[in-house]
Design a binder for these strands. Structure first.
Length: 768
DNA sequence: CAGTGAGCGAGCTTCCGCTTGACTT
């Protein structure tokens, strides 16, 4: 064992500690703080607003061991604080000082942006001390977020539903999604007719279209009629060169977008894979807002490009960070060794690594050159001209490594005045598209653009807004519409009907009714928090604090004096208003009002007024489920009335048992005794006895096949993941080497006892 | 991702930003 090192260097990440150890000698021991080690308490606000916003910090939950280790390692050592050079990193350095009982004004603080021998020796040669102004900016940020989150959320618990949350970042993220969905709903898809001519020249076919679409079918037909006797000539041919440049090296959000687009990874998946690559030393740090490459990396890219592609392909350049909120404590995400073309523990990691490799190398390569051709076609019977455009890649440049370029679109080599043969002329009805819904990755891009959130929080934020029930990631079916197509061919016009799907969407973020209700409530009562510019203004103030132009307590006071009175006002709002209770009309039978409102489990229909809680004898209202696929703000009296007939008696089974149909938490179903079958094709109000009998019989057959053994309370069943034991509450998997049929009750019980108690879910749902 | 089908009465819930962890579905 070597003698105890004289110095202790503390960094944020254990992977960084490992790399650093290879550069610093035996005089230095390197330890990691694993990010923040102290924070405001979890159970209470921990900020004394009366006492100038004095915070109370505690060792973060789960960090007790880290804190103890750091204390032990620091004894009798010179401590060097080497956390990241940004607001959070500076605060970590300060918290470490406090934890270790060191004086922040005297303890050595060093920073480096890249882990190289020279960067490290340079840093060690001239240490500074903790910058308290930067620390104060972090404290202001932390306390503001705490006050907003912990004062706002309880208002939602009282007014809308328990367990909800609101915050500077998540509430704006939800707002973006809610507003986009409303724009899409309000969008009226209108159709127009697009004219496209298919021509032939020099043995090659190409298409040319009319720049202006026609507004209706009559117009389209008249247009084609007028083109019947026409001849076609080349009116002009324009060739001009163009170029396309490579994108910047990856920041976190750019990596998330490209991995989603090219590899189909979720934002979370991308981060997990990148983390592994980072821990194994294959890539630089994956949470960064900077597209800047170190000199080392630029030189490595230059060498690689020269050696493998030649100097025609080289164009070294540096990119600038987008947005003013970038802190640039790290460099761009890049391979640590560009000569390694592929690496990673599995296929998924390899594909992500290769994407990063390609993007990094491409960023230092020459633009691609293209030759664009614009060809105009004159029509003898009309004034307008049809337009065709071609594009041919003349030099691949960076596209050689970072593909995704368009395919060449070739036009025949024709000259002005050349005759063109019409193959056919199409007039096709097309629909305008509404704005695109947000995907995980495009939401991250929007948040980054607004300066809201940080690289380390993008993925978790997307998780939180789903966990809270504000947003669901799903496919949208779209609707099939009939579109018309007119075809002029061989001098005659024919009419076709095509089936076209419009409004379909895959794997997009869709807001729930809850999201709309919470967003409307927050916008009405807490407009500053929901303002897209809010974070930008906060950032400016934090910069002022960091530069010593503003005291952090002063900044917080100004914010809080404006914010806190809003809480008092919001508290006075009625639940009726907050949950957007709405009277749809009166029940024709009883004359009682029918109300839709947002209850504990979502939107619900109510017949009769809510009773006064003090009046114990008041009649209770009737409740009914919402019709499937209808949202709270759309539902009508006509849709609501039949729902009160649920559960409906459909008929009887062959054995005389009653069949019921209704809508539950998981959608429409039919039921006989304890057997439930979800309805997919039919509706609970119209499903027939015969249909229900078939469904029930199928389900019963499935249940019978599912049952391997029945010990009364314990059952051995065949599930989708193989055989398992259940007591109705808890399930236990049966090991592969055990024949499920051979289990007796005792063995089954043992399996169940041995199984872990709570099936730990990665992501918890708020719905209990 | 196994089955599930209620309707504001306990307890508790919540923020954003740093960092990884442990094994279960």
């Amino acid at each position: 064992m070597a003698t105890k090192a004289k110095n202790l260097v503390i960094v944020e990440s254990p992977a960084k500690a490992k790399t650093l150890a290879t550069f610093l000698g035996d005089d230095y021991e390197i330890k990691s703080s694993f990010g923040h080690i102290r924070d405001l308490p979890k159970k209470k606000t921990g900020v004394d607003v009366e006492k100038n916003f004095e915070p109370t910090y505690e060792i973060s939950v789960g960090k007790e061991n880290v804190a103890a280790e750091l204390r032990k390692a620091a004894k009798g050592r010179e401590v060097w604080l080497a956390s990241d050079e940004d607001r959070e990193g500076e605060a970590i350095a300060w918290h470490v000082c406090i934890l270790l009982g060191l004086d922040p004004a005297k303890t050595k603080r060093i920073v480096f942006h890249e882990i190289t021998k020279s960067a490290i020796t340079e840093a060690v040669a001239k240490p500074r001390t903790v910058d308290m102004k930067l620390v104060d900016a972090q404290q202001a940020r932390r306390i503001l977020d705490r006050l907003v989150g912990y004062e706002l959320s309880p208002v939602l618990w009282k007014k809308v539903r328990t367990g909800l949350s609101a915050g500077r970042v998540q509430s704006v993220a939800v707002r973006l999604i809610v507003e986009r969905e409303r724009e899409i709903k309000a969008f009226k898809a209108s159709s127009k007719f697009e004219i496209v001519g298919q021509f032939e020249a020099k043995g090659q076919q190409f298409s040319a279209k009319l720049p202006e679409k026609l507004s209706d079918q009559e117009g389209a037909k008249a247009w084609l009629e007028s083109a019947k006797p026409a001849t076609y000539k080349v009116a002009s041919v324009d060739e001009k060169p163009g170029s396309r440049s490579p994108g910047a090296p990856f920041t976190t959000s750019a990596l998330q977008q490209e991995a989603a687009r090219r590899l189909g990874y979720s934002v979370r998946q991308t981060m997990v894979l990148a983390q592994r690559l980072y821990e194994n030393g294959h890539i630089t740090y994956m949470r960064t807002d900077s597209p800047i490459l170190s000199d080392l990396a630029v030189n490595a890219a230059k060498d690689y490009i020269l050696k493998n592609f030649g100097d025609k392909y080289l164009e070294a350049r540096q990119f600038k960070a987008k947005g003013s909120s970038a802190q640039e404590a790290h460099e761009a995400i890049r391979p640590t060794n560009l000569n390694k073309l592929s690496t990673g523990d599995d296929k998924a990691q390899q594909r992500l690594y290769e994407l990063i490799w390609q993007r990094t190398l491409a960023s230092q390569m020459a633009p691609a050159s293209v030759l664009k051709t614009d060809l105009k076609v004159a029509i003898s019977t009309r004034e307008e001209q049809l337009v065709a455009s071609g594009e041919v890649l003349t030099f691949d440049g960076y596209l050689r490594v970072y593909g995704g370029g368009k395919d060449d679109k070739l036009l025949p080599k024709v000259a002005v005045g050349d005759e063109l043969q019409l193959v056919e002329m199409l007039a096709t009805e097309t629909y305008d598209r509404a704005q695109a819904r947000y995907s995980e990755a495009s939401l991250v891009r929007k948040l980054e653009e607004l300066g809201i959130g940080r690289p380390s929080t993008y993925a978790p934020t997307i998780g939180v807004i789903q966990d809270r029930g504000y947003v669901e990631k799903k496919d949208v079916e779209g609707e099939v519409v009939k579109t018309a197509q007119l075809v002029l061919k061989g001098g005659t016009i024919t009419e076709d009907q095509l089936d076209t799907t419009i409004g379909a969407d895959r794997s997009k973020l869709i807001p729930t009714d809850l999201a709309g209700i919470v967003t409307d409530f927050l916008i009405k009562y807490f407009p500053p928090i929901m303002d897209y510019e809010f974070t930008a203004r906060v950032e400016e103030e934090l910069d002022d604090i960091a530069e010593g132009k503003l005291k952090w307590q002063q900044a917080l006071k100004e914010f809080y004096d404006q914010f806190h009175p809003l809480i008092d006002i919001g508290e006075k709002a009625s639940r009726q208003e907050a949950t957007q209770a709405r009277e749809l009309g009166k029940d024709p039978k009883t004359g009682e009002p029918i109300i839709v409102r947002f209850a504990r489990f979502g939107p619900v229909l109510q017949l009769g007024p809510s009773p006064d809680p003090k009046d114990k004898d008041a009649p209770k209202p009737h409740f009914a489920p919402m019709p499937a696929g209808v949202s709270q703000d759309e539902v009508t009296l006509e849709q609501a009335l039949p729902m009160f007939d649920l559960p409906r008696t459909v008929g009887k089974t062959e054995d005389g048992e009653e069949i019921l149909a209704s809508i539950g938490r998981f959608g429409p179903y039919v039921q006989v005794g304890k057997v439930y079958v979800s309805l997919k094709e039919q509706e609970p109000l119209t499903v027939t006895e015969a249909e229900a009998r078939v469904l029930i019989a199928e389900k019963k057959k499935q249940i019978a096949e599912r049952e391997i053994a029945d010990f009364g309370k314990l059952k051995v069943l065949n599930g989708r993941y193989g055989p398992y034991v259940t007591d109705g509450k808890k399930n236990a998997k049966i090991p592969k080497d055990t024949d499920p049929k051979s289990l007796d009750e005792k063995a089954a019980q043992k399996l169940l006892d041995d199984a872990p108690d709570k099936p730990r879910r990665f992501r918890r749902r708020t719905v209990k």
